[in-house]
Simulated scan of single mutants.
Amino acid sequence: MRLFASAILFVVAALSAPAFAQETAAPSSPQSVKPGINDKFLDPDLKVEEWVQRFEVESREIFHARDEIVKQLKLKPGDRIADIGTGTGLFVEPFAKAVGKEGWVYAIDIAPKFVERVGKLAKELHLDNVTPVVGGEDDIRLAPQSIDVAFICDVYHHFEYPQASLASIHKALVPGGQLVVIDFNRIPGKSRDWTLSHVRAGKEVFRQEIEDAGFEFVEEVKLSEFQENYFLRFTRK
């Protein structure tokens, strides 16, 4: 009965609100910083196997360095990690093993077909501590303080709404939780043409955006396997 009465009060208050409140313009939607960059992943006809062949090959730095990357995350049994932009699920199995039966892996992607593949992969490999999640374009869709580690590998430059996405990550991490960002070095005159056209900004810009979102920079981890990528570690304030 109290709930019903509260609902009535809410409706009455809304109806009796000053006329000028109804005329106030709604806040404008945030603008994409790189319109169209994710169109291919949102395509309902996405061919997952084509991306497996592109992502999971030794010629790709991330694939070549995958064991060292997992080692440098320093995951502990019981940790809860979000693999943000999990793609084909390259890190799902090693993460699941690293956090153990008491830990958890949230494999998040905006591409439903990638999420579907990760679900099948987890089932085939009997990874009972993995939850595939279809993320939003500006929200990772995890509960507050539900993770200890957030991992973003070659994906931050795909954030169309970095401020909103970082806010959702900040909310999902526990205080003092770890955020790791791996991305492409974008250096005019040195980086490949593909990187210069595809990646919107360099390491310093991305780092500043992340710090402005409430994260504290800890260190840059140097990996011998990296020629084009960098590894930055932050903590949630």
Rank of each mutant, 00 (worst) to 15 (best):
R2Q: 09
F4Q: 06
F4C: 03
L15Y: 11
S16I: 12
A25Q: 10
P30D: 10
Q31M: 08
Q31P: 10
N38P: 05
K47R: 06
E49P: 02
E56M: 06
R60I: 11
D67I: 11
E68A: 14
K76P: 02
P77K: 00
P77V: 01
T86P: 06
L90W: 02
F95T: 01
I108G: 06
D109P: 03
K113F: 01
E116M: 10
V133S: 06
R141V: 00
L142W: 04
L142I: 03
A143M: 03
P144W: 09
D148H: 02
V149T: 03
D154F: 08
L166M: 11
S168C: 07
I169R: 00
A172E: 09
P175A: 06
G177C: 12
Q178E: 13
L179R: 01
F184N: 15
N185K: 14
K190Q: 14
R200K: 09
Q208L: 07
Q208V: 05
E211I: 12
A213Q: 14
G214S: 11
F215Q: 15
F215R: 12
E216A: 07
E216R: 04
E219C: 09
E219W: 13
E220K: 09
V221H: 13
K222Q: 15
E225S: 15
L232F: 15
R233T: 08
T235E: 15
